[in-house]
Design a binder for these strands. Structure first.
Lengths: 197, 197, 197, 197
DNA sequence: AATGAATGAGTTTTCATTCAT
DNA sequence: AATGAATGAAAACTCATTCAT
């Protein structure tokens, strides 16, 4: 019998990779990078340790790819908001805040990871680079909005907005049960726009 | 020579403990908790591993005490601002922001630790409790100010303010060289008060 | 198209086998047996790992066949010298020394392998047997010459000669750049025959 | 109770180190470097893996120290022969050959290691350097003798002699039971001196 | 009180070998 | 005949913690 076609193999490979990335994302997010072992990831991704190393050269490389993967989702959420047509700048901001808060609620693990990595992993240079890169691309996205809103210093405004979201993320991480996520959302929107929930 | 009095011994013990806590704080802050070994801490604190275990039962307990120790400094800085007399609420806020931003600049390590711990060690239950506790006491401190400022929902305002500071801390950690710390400070103050730098 | 004849298939198989053996020989010689992986050999021989296992049952069996293959070349070089007609015994010895030293220079890899295997691999019983076998057949070849030269104890003389060649091989391996191969050759020949380079 | 004095500790440390070196020497010699695991060495040296790493930073460093250790014994044996007084150059050579052959018989493991390393580990640069160094110091020792014997090219003679010893070592390694060590010794001595066993 | 030698479980990573396709 | 995905045992190495001195 002939071996699988190249395309089939590529598909399989991509699927496997994503499978591993998802498992790693979840574990890194909930337990932290250092505390998560390759064995655990392999078990969660339902493959063997050895095979995992066919897809990622090292734990550190895996982490890097997880970072890219994780931020990609965040960026894409923002992107889709930005691409919605017929929205005033104000409505855009509301929509963006909505999407971030939704993500915090629904993809807690992802947010935890993104945040914990930003902090925890600065010690690993390659990861630090990756994070800085993707974080900056997020900020640029935000900047566009503040430009449209006519703010005086849109770059700094974008950074402040980013800081708020990150900070809330941290607080939410510390106590996701009791945290008044919705109230905070209203509060922020009120600061930026005249918003009645 | 007469034997040392009990108090002297207690002082000695306290001094030693602080010596260890400082060393651990610095290392945990710069390298992260998991990546710092007990040996390194002992070397930096200039005592033996064995003796270190006379003061702290385990690495995890040491971490807990480091968290308390680290937040205490932060809280005390805030406290001293709050206790300054003859300040209007507005001036208090300015003063508090000043003190936080000063700390970020001058005690980078401490900020890094506080933040990274908040995130990184949520996985360790005992540490999670400690952090939640001290973080809440910080928030209560802030709340007082917003009460005085007459804000409608001072608790949430305190949380938002805390989030901003944390978020800026994260951004500063990612790129402490290039980050426009002073510009961000002005921006924040302008949001809260009519402030001209 | 008609199916290939059995002979053609055998030839193909033999060609493949040789292809693998050559690759393994080169890698074992340069990197050592333990340090060379089956994957590397397969890549160098331009076939898949799986297919390689159709030709050799295990890495150890492959090694055994490599040993035979490697020594065969050595033996054949000697054989061709012995079969040259019209040579006096002295001339034969000169010729043989020539051929060994030429091999050392031109087939460094092969020599390295032969030697390193002789030593490195004594721990693997099956390989030890193979090496002993082929090494002895080499010695028998040499013995013939010393018989013809009329030496008293041709067997031991053959062994001594073999030892000299091996020993020089080792020294050459340690420093193939700086080693005075030609001077050593002259020296040896002078010992055995009145030889002027 | 007070900790041990520094000297006691140093003695203990030296003893442990030698204990480990001996175990490693034996195992590397009989099984080869790659095939011997740190666990095995630790077990043979009767300590834990972890403790072994207090004495040697890595397996490779251990190997290097084993090489030095192993050659030191060889060199010292030669040295002691050279330092015997009232010996003619001829007698010195006899004595040296005696000592080498004795070592081959009695310290088979040591010889095996020396040889196998010379060959097997050329791939590890640090070890290659170590071996080249100690091998050259051995050759210099030999050279002195050939100078005293008035040979024309003592350096090359020393190398040839070294090659013979190495080569015989290899042959002896391949078949230590059946090898006519004593006959070979006589043969060599006869070549160099008029020697009647 | 003080030391650091000692342990061993746990970590990341490699690789000969098998097997579904 | 041919592929390379898949496995898992084993390797080198680390480190929190204990304990004899």
């Amino acid at each position: 019998m002939s071996p699988r076609t190249k395309e089939q193999l590529l598909d399989l490979k991509e699927a496997r990779k994503e499978q591993i990335l998802m498992a790693a994302l979840e574990l890194f997010g909930s337990k932290g990078y250092q505390t998560t072992s390759i064995s655990e990831i392999a078990k969660k991704a339902e493959l063997s340790k050895g095979l995992l190393y066919n897809y990622f050269e090292s734990k550190e490389e895996l982490l890097n790819e997880v970072v890219v993967f994780a931020f990609k989702e965040t960026t894409e959420a923002g992107e889709s908001v930005l691409n919605e047509e017929n929205l005033t700048a104000d409505e855009l901001l509301v929509s963006l805040v909505d999407s971030y808060f939704l993500m915090m609620k629904e993809q807690e693990e992802l947010m935890k990871l993104v945040l914990s990595l930003a902090v925890q992993v600065s010690a690993i240079p390659s990861v630090h680079n990756t994070i800085t890169m993707v974080y900056n691309s997020l900020l640029e996205q935000l900047e566009v909005i503040f430009i449209n809103l006519g703010y005086e210093n849109p770059k700094n405004e974008a950074m402040l907005f980013g800081a708020i979201v990150d900070g809330i993320g941290i607080q939410y991480m510390l106590d996701s049960e009791g945290y008044p996520l919705d109230e905070m959302k209203s509060l922020i929107l009120k600061k930026y726009i005249d918003y009645e929930n």
